[in-house]
Design a protein around this nucleic acid. Structure first.
Ligand SMILES: [Mn+2]
Ligand SMILES: [Mn+2]
Ligand SMILES: [Mn+2]
Ligand SMILES: [Mn+2]
Lengths: 233, 233
DNA sequence: TATATAAGTTAGACTAATCTAACAAATTTT
DNA sequence: AAAATTTGTTAGATTAGTCTAACTTATATA
């Protein structure tokens, strides 16, 4: 049985080693930053997680999840995203409110509850922020998404997810008239300050580079399986 | 902000001082028994709860909730019973499975969640065990219920709740063919060992005194507002 | 009333999770 | 290669919640 804290470490480690592909390991400071604790605290926990065979780790080395650790992390992430979906779909929460409550709900221990909730929601594949929900086996759909800031002027794309899950950012996204599955066209990218002009539903908006870094999109060419020389390799 | 543990103490205190009416106070050992900890542990917590003005308590004296303490306890009880109802009504849990999971869910902190859940369930007044669910103001319906063991031979009654919420007991109740809102007639009570014969839906069953102590009923006379000399005063 | 039993308290110890402050190793820059 | 910086570790302390064992107070019984 894992404690809430242990679960949070595993979930965070999983996110750090799966978001940016290629990166399979994390560091003490990085983990501390994301968990909102001090590196010293993380260091103590690393010893415990290693002892429980949930991570691979040597003194002064990098941290990687073991198979069991990854499985446990996936389970927490699955619960988090299912609960977010429940709150959003069934209880009329807005997308900027669900995360905070799901942070608590993800730690409820009951296999039956997870299964029943999944069924009740009709086996959703994505949460309100467009993040993939791992299924009962821990598998999830991979999508070749890029950030809005990686798009070229003149190209069209569809918003599929957000990177930043904080309430202020999510509210700002709504304000700009954007949302999951919205189509948009990149009109221009200003060379001086990288301000990006986009058109959504006929309305033109200007967004910053910082904003665009946190919006995930799929480009129209990719969707149509056309090779897209700009950002897909 | 209260910890899980503090919430459990307040909820348990509330149940001890509201179930049996007339009894407004509880003792250290009694509380320890219900919480599954040692009296020494309770004693430490009493000091903390007193300091937070959630209970009234003097060394070697009895324990009573303050107004704030009672309100906090009611909120936890409300959440517990709403979650039980959700699991039972929406997720197809059986009535012997809901309690264990609700013990965890009752501690989720989100006023909005409680309100939305209440609405989603259409403001239920009773949980799957027949227990009253306090409303948003902390009020709940009072019903003059008695235990099945208090009934006289020849009288009819309706089952409205169970006292024992443990899975083995609840499964046994089903086995006997009983459930919330079932009507039954007490055929006989044997003077030697107090075995009670009841008739439910034409089927006759024999139950022990211990069993009957844990079944709450409303007698037919009381329901019809006829004075009932046997157990109502 | 004296004694036995029940109820409640205290002291001292333990674990999990956290911190600060000091130290050590690894990496980057000059 | 030396110095500076970043990254990671250790020691020692703190807090919440729990325990055992010994003690004290209150209540019931002979
Ligand atoms: Mn989230
Ligand atoms: Mn969490
Ligand atoms: Mn219950
Ligand atoms: Mn509880």
């Amino acid at each position: 049985m894992l404690s809430f804290t242990e679960e949070n470490y595993l979930k965070t480690l999983l996110k750090l080693t799966m978001d940016e592909r290629g990166k399979e390991e994390a560091g003490t400071n990085e983990l501390a930053l994301h968990l909102g604790v001090k590196p010293a605290t993380v260091n103590d926990m690393l010893k415990k997680l290693k002892q429980k065979k949930l991570i691979q780790y040597e003194k002064y080395g990098k941290i990687a999840l073991t198979k069991t650790g990854r499985k446990a992390g996936l389970e927490v992430l699955r619960k988090h995203r299912l609960w977010e979906t429940f709150l959003y779909e069934k209880l009329e929460f807005s997308w900027d409110e669900v995360h905070q409550v799901a942070e608590q709900l993800e730690h409820i221990q009951s296999q039956k509850l997870v299964d029943k909730l999944d069924k009740f929601l009709d086996y959703p594949e994505f949460d309100p922020h467009g993040d993939e929900i791992p299924n009962a086996k821990g598998e999830f759909k991979y999508r070749h998404k890029v950030t809005l800031s990686q798009m070229e002027a003149g190209k069209s794309c569809k918003m599929v997810a957000v990177k930043d899950n904080s309430a202020p950012f999510l509210q700002y996204v709504i304000e700009v008239g954007l949302g999951i599955n919205n189509h948009m066209k990149v009109l221009s990218i200003h060379p001086y300050d990288e301000i990006i002009q986009i058109e959504v539903n006929g309305k033109v908006s200007s967004v910053s580079k910082k904003f665009a870094d946190n919006i995930f999109v799929i480009c129209e060419d990719c969707m149509k399986n056309k090779p897209c020389k700009f950002h897909c390799k």
